[in-house]
Amino acid sequence: MAEPGPFRSSASAVRLAGRLLCWCLAAAMASAAVDAFLDPQVRWWGVVWPLPWWLTCATALAWSVLRAREKADRPPPQGSARSDWERAA
């Protein structure tokens, strides 16, 4: 029986991290657009608007680590000769 929840496999964790990365990037672009076009003068805006950019960097790092782990866990295809170039990648 499969495990319930979002982390059933490494593929689902990678997919979840990828979705989170996309949403963080969208929020970062939206906050940059608000900052550029509306120029909010409230005190807290200078602290809040860069937060989605930091989250984007963190989720990009998490996604890349999870994706590398997923690729390392995958067995090579059967019956194919692996060249030096494929081994390096």
Rank of each mutant, 00 (worst) to 15 (best):
R8F: 03
L51D: 00
R82V: 07
A32S: 06
P6L: 07
A33T: 13
A11Q: 12
R74Y: 00
A33W: 09
A68V: 04
A60S: 13
S80L: 15
R19A: 15
A11R: 08
R19V: 15
T56Y: 03
C57T: 12
S9R: 09
W49H: 14
D35I: 00
V48P: 01
V47Q: 04
P6A: 07
A28H: 06
M29I: 14
S31Q: 03
A36H: 10
A27V: 05
V47L: 07
V14G: 02
Q78V: 12
A33G: 02
P6C: 06
P40M: 08
T56P: 02
D84V: 14
G5Q: 02
L21Y: 02
C24S: 11
S12N: 11
L55T: 10
A88T: 15
G18E: 08
C24W: 01
W45L: 04
P76H: 03
W53I: 15
E70S: 07
W63M: 04
M29N: 15
P77L: 12
S80Y: 14
G79A: 09
R19N: 14
A27Y: 07
V14A: 08
V48E: 05
A2C: 08
W45E: 08
P6H: 06
P50R: 03
D35Q: 10
W85Q: 11
L51K: 00
L55H: 14
A32L: 00
D39M: 06
P40I: 07
W23F: 14
P76L: 02
S10L: 12
S12Q: 14
A60H: 12
A58T: 12
W45G: 11
D35W: 01
A36S: 07
W54D: 11
C57V: 14
L51G: 00
A68G: 10
L21A: 01
W44E: 14
R87K: 15
A13S: 13
W49V: 05
P40F: 10
E3L: 13
A60V: 11
L66V: 04
G18K: 05
C22M: 06
A62E: 01
Q41A: 14
A68N: 02
E3V: 13
A60K: 05
A17Q: 10
D35K: 00
A72V: 01
A36F: 07
L25N: 08
S31F: 12
V48S: 02
R43A: 15
L55Y: 12
A81I: 10
R74V: 00
W45K: 11
P50S: 09
A27W: 02
L38G: 03
G18W: 05
W53G: 14
V47Y: 07
